[in-house]
Design a protein around this nucleic acid. Structure first.
Length: 261
DNA sequence: ATGGTGGTCTCACCA
């Protein structure tokens, strides 16, 4: 089973790249974030035409998450949000069951800057999510949470760790919050098969960061132990991030793909 | 110092 997570940064502007991605990789399940459209504006027909069943939760302007399952795979027990979220009105998590797999598409709070009000909301969001998962994991032994975590887990996930030390996306408290989540028994699935430094999933639009490969790995798939043992491959689809690979513009994130046997 | 959004439609907010 091939699982994919991608912060698309506007689903409507990224339909061509999404079609390319689905054709190229044929993922079984896609978790998308930053749809940036309302439920009414979600391009359901175009995605159905790609051969995918979809559940989504959108809102005006920001946020928005979706889960796509390649037909005939069905999405069951779909839930928006989770109990205890400090930003319950924001479309940041969607949960569904595909086969035996419980999967969530997550868009973490960015946090703006260390010490800001939004930084505290980010830490609160992590804590509430951890509490929720404690229960969810008991009900679902095969579970994956995939999305834009807005945290680079370790220095090897950062192009210049000294520059980023202590800054948003890399601060100690964010990394500790992520470790608390992993402490539930979740595993960073990409790291099961690839220990190399320099694996990134996001490059700032500014400063020509992609062309210089100055990125961070902040898009993750975290899976329960039962699944972690079955990871056979993990890749980042840099083609979807490359401005030169298509006539249209890329998202600032690249899709991350994990294959489970 | 880019690229996405919405409404103030030329500019503010977010990442």
């Amino acid at each position: 089973m091939k699982l994919l997570t991608w912060n698309v940064n506007s689903i409507r502007l990224r339909l061509d790249r999404l079609a390319d991605l689905c054709q190229r990789e044929a993922p079984d399940v896609l978790c998308l974030q930053e749809l940036k459209c309302t439920d009414a504006d979600f391009p359901s027909d175009a995605i159905a035409a790609l051969g995918y069943n979809t559940s989504f939760w959108g809102q005006k302007g920001y946020n928005g998450v979706a889960i796509l399952a390649r037909a005939p795979l069905a999405l069951r027990d779909v839930r928006r949000n989770f109990a205890g979220s400090p930003v319950a009105e924001e479309a940041r998590s969607l949960w569904a069951t595909v086969g035996d797999l419980r999967i969530a598409s997550l868009y973490m709070v960015n946090g703006q800057s260390v010490g800001s009000d939004k930084y505290q909301v980010k830490l609160d969001f992590f804590a509430a999510l951890t509490a929720h998962l404690q229960r969810e994991m008991i009900a679902h032994p095969e579970l994956v949470i995939a999305g834009d975590f807005n945290v680079a887990p370790e220095d090897r996930d950062v192009y210049d760790p000294r520059l980023w030390k202590g800054r948003i996306l890399c601060s100690d408290r964010e990394r500790e919050a992520l470790q608390a989540l992993l402490g539930l028994g979740l595993v960073d699935l990409h790291r099961q098969v690839d220990q190399s430094a320099g694996v990134y999933s996001w490059w700032d639009y500014r400063f020509g960061q992609f062309s210089r490969d100055r990125g961070l790995r902040i898009d993750l798939l975290l899976g329960s132990a039962a699944l972690a043992q079955r990871v056979s491959a993990a890749t980042v689809d840099r083609r979807a991030r490359d401005p030169k690979s298509s006539s249209d513009k890329p998202s600032d994130h690249a899709p991350v793909i994990v294959t489970i046997t």
